[in-house]
Design a protein around this nucleic acid. Sequence first.
DNA 1: AATGAATGAGTATTCATTCAT
DNA 2: CATGAATGAATACTCATTCAT
Lengths: 184, 184, 184, 184
Amino acid sequence: MSEGRRVNRGPGAAADNRAALIAAARDTFTEIGFHAPLSLVARRAGVGQGSLYRHFPDRESLTLAVFEDNVTGLETFAANPEITLEDVLDRVIEELTAVTAVVADLDPTTTDSRITGLAERLRTLLAAKLDADRTTTPWRADLSADELVLAVAMLASLLAHADAAARPELADRAWNLLRRGLAP
Amino acid sequence: MSEGRRVNRGPGAAADNRAALIAAARDTFTEIGFHAPLSLVARRAGVGQGSLYRHFPDRESLTLAVFEDNVTGLETFAANPEITLEDVLDRVIEELTAVTAVVADLDPTTTDSRITGLAERLRTLLAAKLDADRTTTPWRADLSADELVLAVAMLASLLAHADAAARPELADRAWNLLRRGLAP
Amino acid sequence: MSEGRRVNRGPGAAADNRAALIAAARDTFTEIGFHAPLSLVARRAGVGQGSLYRHFPDRESLTLAVFEDNVTGLETFAANPEITLEDVLDRVIEELTAVTAVVADLDPTTTDSRITGLAERLRTLLAAKLDADRTTTPWRADLSADELVLAVAMLASLLAHADAAARPELADRAWNLLRRGLAP
Amino acid sequence: MSEGRRVNRGPGAAADNRAALIAAARDTFTEIGFHAPLSLVARRAGVGQGSLYRHFPDRESLTLAVFEDNVTGLETFAANPEITLEDVLDRVIEELTAVTAVVADLDPTTTDSRITGLAERLRTLLAAKLDADRTTTPWRADLSADELVLAVAMLASLLAHADAAARPELADRAWNLLRRGLAP
DNA sequence: AATGAATGAGTATTCATTCAT
DNA sequence: CATGAATGAATACTCATTCAT
């Protein structure tokens, strides 16, 4: 008699569950912060706690998956040659104001290859755009992609501690300041 | 038998205990982060748990006290007219690499007067120096003290998430970037 | 080596655990009083602390469950038409001398529906018997079920403060007095 | 330098302190219940915790002192021959609705002579009035002072668990019921 | 492979009691 | 004799993780 208990949808549900967990984690971390109980993430994803642990054996795996999801989306977005570095950064900022906690809590000095790999993908993506835009956009001549990543990381950290409601305005002020440091 | 119950040094120990708690909190938050167990802070301060709670009824009180301690030190330092804004900022940065977690975890968008009061003291201090230096130092003409505070806050947030060992180098890179945004 | 971590009997143990917790709570509250540590209840039930909190998120939930268990037993008992109000009251008194603390600690003036619901079930049960017995038994003509509940509540409160050993005799004396007030 | 600290008023303050503690205890137990922190009682009495312990080495001593205070007041009141048992009981009830917690938490089955002594004084007082009134007032011929004490104890227990706001009405209903049991 | 109940270590917090001043 | 800070044991409660089904 399995009444009450969610039906076991079997192996086919695995991919769905993974996606639901990532989405739930993004929302939950955004709202409650990075220290939100994992049980809450599982509940919101409509998934058992055991499944969460099967997909993501620790909190960091889950965080990384959320980040990975963002980077992938960004890569797709940036693939279009019409899109400028400015556009990409705008989107990054926009996503940050929502997701911050995730990126911010990834130790920027880590040597964990899962993290550095993602950071590298982000760096690569920004470097490519930077190269493409260099002559036509208002960026400092010696600006490096590393500096861009650093700027984004600072912004992310700042926003992670702010109240969700105050993030947009704070992001604006901070990005303005950072932009000056990136401009020619 | 030197174990067992700590001797009760009596009310006279109150001031010492308070100071020891602040120092222990600073160290512990720096090492372990803002979520370090308060019981550990008490132990390191060589003080009973109850005394910790008497002096600082909640985690935020303790955090604020650490911050307050820093601001006070900074005020004393800045009182000397020989000291330039550059000097003050250097000291702030230096302290940040150690204390970060504390400052970073104070919600920058709060309206709690205990927090805004301290932030205001910091802003005032920086504004005074900024004014004094304006004509002779390399700061943007329209630079405001608010922007300085924001820059410091961003740096603090960033460092708070970094491994203690990596902070000095990271602080350097980040501050360089921010400085460009503050320069003329 | 039978020590160490209790074996995880799995979800199937849920119902057993719930029942064990209610039984342990009844015993513990009776012996130690309503303020007995919940950790003790869990230990006596042979159940982890977490499970106690899963089943009963707060002390009141647990108290209510014990009370509910009693009312349910009483309803079953009273279902038999041979059973008179006198019989029911005798059983109530008898149970009170054991359970008192539970009933007594439920605020008689509350508006919490979980509590009033149970109280209502008790009132209903007594009212039905009262009605059935009215002509043939020695009850005051204008006696209401509310008065019966009040009498029981007073007795329960009294016994809750008495030493367990002294309860039977005390219950006897008090009930005699109350009975006079309920008689014609 | 003892600034901040309350001045030490010296030995002469002892009696005042004792009275203040009893009054504070009565109020606090009434409002918060018998389990109110003793530190709160001391604070409200404007007295150090050490002094509380000097006067009343344990919680029960303090409780007893409150009770004692009430009985003494009652004895004075009852000394006047014009005062009937009815009057005395009315005053007892009235005080109960305020002080309940105190009386209720004194184990009615105890053999502690400090408690039985006070209970005996109350019993004596009621017995005297009962005797004086017997022929002229509406009391059962075989009513004993013990029954009166028991009735009062039941009422006290009941009220101790009720919300302070609801006590007057509850006291009324309950006393009505009890009175029937005491009437001829 | 999924489910969610069970587990208990880890933390926070309170408060009775002691004791230096 | 008064004061109130210090102490730490006792409790409440949370949540990461395991595991029977």
